[in-house]
Amino acid sequence: MVGREGDDIDASGEPERPAAGVELTAGAVARRLGVAPSTLRSWAHRYGLGPAGHETGRYRRYAERDVAELETMCRLVGQGVAPAAAAALARGQESGDGPVASAPATGGEPDGGRRSRARLVRGLVNASQRLDADAVVAGVSEHLAAEGVVATWQLVCRPALAVLDRQVSETGGCIHAQLMFAWAVSTALRPISAAADTTPDPVAGGAAVLLACTDGEQHTLALEALHAALVESRLPARMLGPSVPDVALDEACRRTRPDTAVLWAQTPRTARPGALRTAGSSARSVLAVGPGWAGLDLVDLPETVDTVDDLPAALRHVAARLGLPLELH
């Protein structure tokens, strides 16, 4: 099926990848990549990324090879690679100079990580704004593999979320970018969290950490990061997920008898002391995590209830409770 000239459309109404010998217009390619047509013109002029053999004054037509180069360019820029370097790597992929999948998202500067991490954060924010989920997943996954969950969450994900949160509060827009970033980070964390099913439980008697959001709390990303960090550090953990009613929390704690129950609350509205008491009736200790608990009067709660304000502190608390060595990556 064909729409406007050069726009190949499949049965669902979405552009298809060009088949061999089929060429796309600049508009069709720009829509696929989520960039402006002017960006394609700029990349062609500055870096030579564009249709091979294009003649001045004629419409550009992009073949499959051209689109593949541009997809690589978008992915690398989204990971924080400088445009000139990304273009060289994209062209190198097509000319056989070497793969680009291993192009680093961090490092490469004389004084190391700070500037490269800042560049990565900018790249992830930009990729989120253009809804390039693949670029965000790739960038976060690469940093996770190199630096581990704690460093990735503290130095990359939280700063990027802060930028996106600020944009939402200042403009009232960009919520789509914020939501997509959260989904992409969750996707990148999932393979690490899935290892919990195959990691031997190092705690005698099956004692574990039980993680849950309080009733009505839908923000799970920070709790997912904590779960992945626990698994990565070989600390046994079970995840219940968002908005766990007190009755379900009580049943889960009674069945698993966790050493530590971790309850996440993003806002004061969902930070209910009653949930801490419910978990404390069966868990040996309860850890209240998240900004929702800040400023709440918890003095009347049992001594087994404690609060922390970040992921490393939560890990240290759990490891100390279990009497296990903590291996932060």
Rank of each mutant, 00 (worst) to 15 (best):
I9P: 01
R234I: 07
A248P: 00
T220M: 09
E71V: 12
A135H: 06
T307D: 06
T307M: 09
V77Q: 10
V299M: 08
P159G: 09
G241F: 09
L235S: 07
A294C: 09
D300R: 09
A105S: 14
S233N: 09
G173M: 08
P99R: 12
P15R: 15
Q178N: 08
R17F: 13
D259F: 02
E55G: 01
D97S: 13
L315D: 09
L287K: 04
T256W: 11
V305D: 04
A26Q: 12
L221G: 07
C74P: 00
A228V: 10
A208S: 14
V185G: 02
V163D: 05
E64M: 08
R234F: 07
F181T: 06
A19T: 10
D306Q: 15
T106N: 07
A212F: 03
E14I: 10
W43T: 04
A135F: 05
L211P: 00
T72L: 12
T214D: 04
Q129R: 15
H54N: 03
A90Q: 03
E64S: 15
L179R: 13
G280A: 14
D97W: 12
A207C: 06
A103L: 05
V185S: 04
S141I: 08
H54S: 10
A177K: 06
P99Y: 11
R321T: 12
D97M: 10
L189F: 06
T56C: 00
A85Q: 15
G139A: 13
S12Y: 12
A229P: 01
S128C: 07
R91S: 13
S233A: 15
S243H: 10
Q178K: 14
S38T: 13
A261F: 02
V136E: 04
G98A: 12
A207F: 06
N126T: 09
A135S: 14
D132R: 01
R254M: 02
G57W: 07
G205P: 02
P18H: 07
A182P: 01
L161P: 00
L223K: 07
T199E: 12
L296Y: 01
A82R: 14
G112Y: 11
G280W: 00
A184T: 03
A90H: 03
R61N: 08
G139D: 05
V67R: 06
S116P: 07
A265Y: 04
L70E: 05
V318Y: 00
R32Y: 04
M73Q: 03
H317Y: 15
D310Y: 01
V22G: 03
L40Y: 06
L33M: 08
A225P: 07
Q167G: 12
A314P: 02
L328W: 02
A86C: 09
D66I: 05
G50R: 01
G280H: 00
R46D: 11
E109H: 13
A271M: 03
R316H: 14
F181E: 03
A105F: 12
A225H: 05
L210K: 01
A88K: 14
V121W: 02
P258L: 04
L70M: 11
G53H: 09
R255I: 03
S102Q: 14
G98W: 09
A135P: 04
E217Y: 05
V262N: 02
L263I: 13
R158C: 11
T278C: 00
V289Y: 06
A182L: 04
L322C: 04
A207T: 09
R321S: 14
P302E: 01
L70A: 06
D111H: 14
